[in-house]
Design a protein around this nucleic acid. Structure first.
Lengths: 218, 218
DNA sequence: GGCTTATTTTGAACGTGTTCACTTTTGGAC
DNA sequence: GTCCAAAAGTGAACACGTTCAAAATAAGCC
């Protein structure tokens, strides 16, 4: 009665009906959440509204994301990862290290400037973001940025523009620290519309302090 | 009929009944909130519990603080301001600038290590904290820390341990950027109990990168 | 004292994020 | 096709932060 061949065929069926419908639901949720977050902002978007627009039950949301914050990163992790690979892909050989760094961070600044309100929530919610289905992915992304900066530093040594005593990872850490602090300050300062050029100019000035160092020349 | 003298006396009466009872209520709320935040943490403490312990109505809370976050800073602004003046008051003339800086930030690290869970919330909630009755006080406190660091840098120039091209304020900003980023990382990394010595050692290493600079010596 | 006005207090009511006991759907065995 | 266990979906229910119209209280004036 049972036909092994047919059974196999139906079994595989592009991952099965279940998986396909799960993927479709996830995509619906993604789209609905992105639209609403961008339209109304993070706080003003309710989980009920997301569920309604995605055409799923309210409870279903929380099988795809641990909580509302996780829902935010479900969306923006993708964009941030894409953004990071773009930022580091571009060739970049300015004579000054500070300019090479600013060129990389420019992409992040531009991305945040496009949606400053949402960016503020991103930066706020990522603080001590360790629990949640998307949290690990975000942490990995973060490490990748630091690794990219470290690679840039290494290349800088080869080019003779970097001659730090500390190892590349530690230098990258100092650079990343300054970036994270400055991007926060930039978005906090300019109450409503942050100016891209101004933010990058300030970032460059502070990075330049790091490049030059503080101690007297011997 | 009316006696001017008496009228004046009753009018002043140590600020009047109303003001005294307001001050007493505020003190009750402060105490209740501090106890509960320390006992149970920020999230687990409900505004209803604070109101109950302070022996006031629920709505009354929100005439003394704009929201729950503001309630947190109503308490910790006092401690942080006190902490800051202590941290900068101590005499401090180590030969290396990095050590002078670490000595200042040591007090902050120690304070956070004492209550790491609450510290995480403080650092999380202070991101883009501009609205609320206590927000302005907090921002002022923040500026005071940066100003203190700038003064320390200035003293460093006099002692010959600092010879940066950039002005003091900019140098202080770079230092403060590294501090804020590192203290966050420290509290995030060590899942449960952050190690004070380890955190300070890491901070020192990153600050040392700034001191030494990145560019080749000529 | 009484009377009026301004200030302060209050908790019921609202909208929210999240949970969980229950229902529905699916995949596979016979 | 029929059945069963497992997986996925669901919304009523809960606990919470916050608001606001109404009540209570204090101040000032005669």
């Amino acid at each position: 009665m049972s036909e092994p061949t047919l059974r196999n065929t139906s079994r595989m069926a592009e991952g099965g009906l279940r998986e396909r419908s799960k993927a479709r639901k996830l995509e619906n949720i993604r789209r609905a959440a992105r639209e609403l977050f961008v339209e109304k902002g993070y706080d003003a978007t309710t989980t009920r509204a997301i569920a309604k627009r995605a055409d799923v039950g309210l409870g279903t949301l929380f099988t795809y994301a641990a909580d509302k914050r996780d829902l935010l990163f479900l969306i923006f992790n993708d964009e941030l990862i894409e953004l990071t690979s773009q930022a580091f892909a571009r060739e970049n050989s300015a004579p000054a290290l500070a300019d090479r760094l600013v060129a990389v961070f420019h992409d992040f600044y531009a991305y945040f400037a496009r949606q400053p309100n949402l960016a503020r929530f991103l930066l706020r919610e990522l603080t001590f973001y360790t629990q949640g289905l998307e949290a690990h992915r975000f942490q990995a992304h973060r490490d990748q940025i630091v690794a990219g900066v470290a690679a840039l530093v290494k290349r800088g040594r080869a080019d003779g523009v970097v001659a730090a005593v500390a190892d590349d990872a530690l230098v990258a850490r100092a650079i990343f620290d300054i970036y994270t602090a400055e991007v926060r300050r930039w978005l906090a300062d300019d109450g409503r519309e942050p100016k891209l050029a101004q933010g990058l100019a300030t970032l460059r000035r502070v990075l330049q302090v790091l490049v030059e160092g503080l101690q007297p020349r011997r």
